[in-house]
Amino acid sequence: MIEVTNLEKSFGDAHILKGISTTFEKGKTNLIIGQSGSGKTVFLKCLLGLFDYEKGKIAYEGQVFAELSEAEKRDLRAKIGMVFQGGALFDSMTIEENVMFPLQMFTKQSKSEMQDRANFVLNRVELKDANKKKPSEASGGMQKRVAIARAIVNNPKYLFCDEPNSGLDPKTAIVIDNLIKEITEEYNITTVINTHDMNSVMEIGEKIVFLKDGLKAWEGSKDTIFQTDNEVVTDFVYSSNLFKKVRRMYIEENENS
């Protein structure tokens, strides 16, 4: 579990995060949603320790990140897996080498053990016969799968994903979303996903934190987001005609029953 208390972050005069408090639960897919510029990426980078923050605290299983020594931070980071928006795969390595990389850095496994583990997770994300390819030879969907495989190869306790299905077709996006959800449940890890894709919200949003102008505007789940009267949330969620129609059908169905 990750607990965030009153988190504040500024860049010069721009106050980006204005006191966010929330918890991200273990074994669940926790989603951070909001419009572009609402502070989602800054929030995620603060959680990862890539940005320092002025006020508040972030605690991983009770351990306050800012109070940890460098060695403790390093140990904690070895338990974090991250899927970047563009994959952030290392261009100079093959897909297999990319997946083996965290094992090379943090374990004392032999090369054959690392290869076995890499093959296992590549199979888990349903990528076969791609081991020797370079990332540039893989499609967007394949790159996302490799990024997920690299993130989970060292059995992380925390998985962070920054817009994992951006740039993917709707069908592949759903496959990636479901894959992340399955992995979260299978390994009982704390997963935090940064997204503005409403399909992801409806598919895997077990816990949703909605950000607006650097503040937490709403918190709930995919089951409660249709029922909320919070105007800020409804403006965002029902901005597309498709979701307006879905809501109307949902309300009608409720009234009929």
């Binding site: 890539l50 070895a78 991250m82 970047f84 952030a88 261009d91 962070f160």
Partner: peptide
């Protein structure tokens, strides 16, 4: 620079490298 732009350096930092 390309590693910076494509977040590969961020990926190293997140891993604690």
């Amino acid at each position: 620079g390309t590693m910076r732009v494509t977040e590969q350096i961020d990926a190293l930092e997140v891993m604690g490298i």
